[in-house]
Amino acid sequence: RERFRKVARAGCLVLLIAAGCAVLWGVLELRKHQRRDAADRTLNGEGVISPSWRVSGDCRPRTTAERSRDEAVADLLHHFDHQRVNPGLGYKEQYFAWRWRIAGSSGSCSPSPEHYRRLAGVLVPLGWPKLPTDRSDLELTRRLPPSPALARNLAELAFASHPLPFGPLEYDNRPFARIMLAEQGRFARPWGRRALTEIAPDTKLGTSAATLAAATVPQQAAPRIAAALTAMTQEADRRRKRIEGLKGGPHIVYQLRDGERLFELADALATAGPAAEPHAEPLGQTF
């Protein structure tokens, strides 16, 4: 009887340890899953980035009051140190980065190009934009005159080895920096080859690399972007067949994230210009 009691006790202990291990494993798996979700939200959670041609449009000339306000904000240049991050610099960036034309024809035009030239003259030699904490500085680069130095500064951010989180949801800023680098035109060419190797259909980093490659090495980029589009449509087709096999009838086969990657790839293909035409078949299939 004593022996039976010992065996039972040992058995209970083993069961208890096994149950403890199972609970621990479950908790660790759950935390791993949560970490993976959070990382995915940081890297791919942001909506589609609007390219410049979608942001700008008709505008009305600036009024005298608005021009005088522009002068006043531009004067902050003389009162704040540009070597360090400070509220004066941050406010000025936000002011001049504002999407003046977002309201369409009723919106005011941007401040005078002269203000942007002066800003570029001060900020770009300082290595700006550096580690952005919000979008204003990257939004502002869209309005400054393109230059080799600005392209170099943007490339530092666009190809950083780690995510550059901004905003309360901590979205990664690198894809936006890649789009801004693409808008530097010929000055972005030194990063074209690298972008070409990073084209991917399923991540925001991959689709923004596609835009950069299309803007810099369009002949090589267009077939690769078309291949990425084909990979997406084929995957959607497989999913459709699988769902139809189970339930029958037509189903939505693109999940929201896939749809956004699809828009980004389509826009990247269009960025390649005339080089995109012979490779546009996958886009036609998407329709």
């Binding site: 269009a270 546009a280 886009l283």
Partner: peptide, 24 residues
């Protein structure tokens, strides 16, 4: 609209496919 605008920018067959799509 992203897809339609991209197809219009590319032109050719892509633009034709877009013109046939009900959502463009």
């Amino acid at each position: 609209t992203y897809l339609c605008a991209a197809a219009d920018r590319i032109g050719g067959r892509a633009a034709v496919a877009a013109s046939r799509a009900s959502f463009c």
